[in-house]
Design a protein around this nucleic acid. Structure first.
Lengths: 146, 146
DNA sequence: GACTTTGGTCAGATTCTCTGACTACTTTGG
DNA sequence: CCAAAGTAGTCAGAGAATCTGACCAAAGTC
């Protein structure tokens, strides 16, 4: 590692990301969702409001569709998602959020809001805004689904 | 997910992080380091220039010391690290970077520099600076080892 | 010197992930 | 309309990564 003040941007991005994720999992566990694993969460997070196909979940989470299937099986058994037939393609099925996932999502969103508030208090409103703005702009060249 | 323009800061941090990581692994694989797995890399990344204890590696990577030991075993077999006795504590051993790891690190650093340059070109010098500055400040409240 | 903490290992189980092979449905180009 | 090619998903089996629990040896504390 270089001198303390010169960490590369990757590490700099990762540190707050992980801090946030840790906070979310801690609160989720406290509120009766200790059964969601990080791997499952990475898939669950990507299920859209109208359902999402397995293949699409796999792509976005950067895992194989077999792995995605495995994780969705578990999420289904645990009551977080349902699989419904896709009306537009009989091969496909849509993974949809169930009640339990919506409740968990609400809790997670609350933690995110809380942490974002803490960050804004630490950075000041102006720098927080600059941060979000720069990251949003960066998305244009780093997010394949932007 | 919310409207496109309103992604939470966690996702916003994660997207560029993963893009960078993917680039690093791609180049590393091309240059004869296809044997380092992501899990190993997360440990390897945290080995300091003067060697680092297993327990410390485990803490920083947020894995158990058993897992860390398992990964270091593999890195050692693959020639990326050595284990040397810690002169200050006869129980402990220091995990030290070997030649092969230094070479890989040089390559990785090159990719990071390249990607940072691309980002700066996209954002402009000013916003890139603001981004790094905000992230560095955030480290004060999100990095337990800051 | 007994007690507690800390650094690390061993053993075994579980979870996550992958590759390869396969079925069923859809799309496309005559 | 039909054959070929592509896409959605599953099954089977293997390998990688991770954990918990039990343990040993050296350090630190009273």
């Amino acid at each position: 590692m270089a001198a303390e003040s010169e960490l590369n941007t990757g590490v700099l991005l990762f540190l707050p990301y992980r801090a946030l994720e840790n906070r979310i999992f801690a609160v989720l566990a406290e509120s009766g969702h200790e059964d969601v694993t990080p791997a499952q969460a990475r898939v669950l997070q990507r299920v859209g409001p109208d359902g999402t196909r397995l293949t699409e979940l796999a792509e976005q989470a950067q895992i194989t569709k077999q792995t995605a299937g495995f994780l969705v099986d578990q999420l289904e058994k645990a009551g977080y998602v349902r699989r419904e037939p896709d009306p537009s393609d009989r091969r496909a099925r849509l993974v949809c959020l169930a009640e339990k996932a919506l409740a968990a999502k609400e809790i997670a969103d609350g933690v995110v809001a809380e942490v974002e508030k803490e960050w804004e208090e630490h950075l000041g409103r102006r720098r927080m805004k600059q941060l979000r703005e720069a990251l949003t702009a960066l998305r244009e060249i780093t997010d394949p689904w932007a």
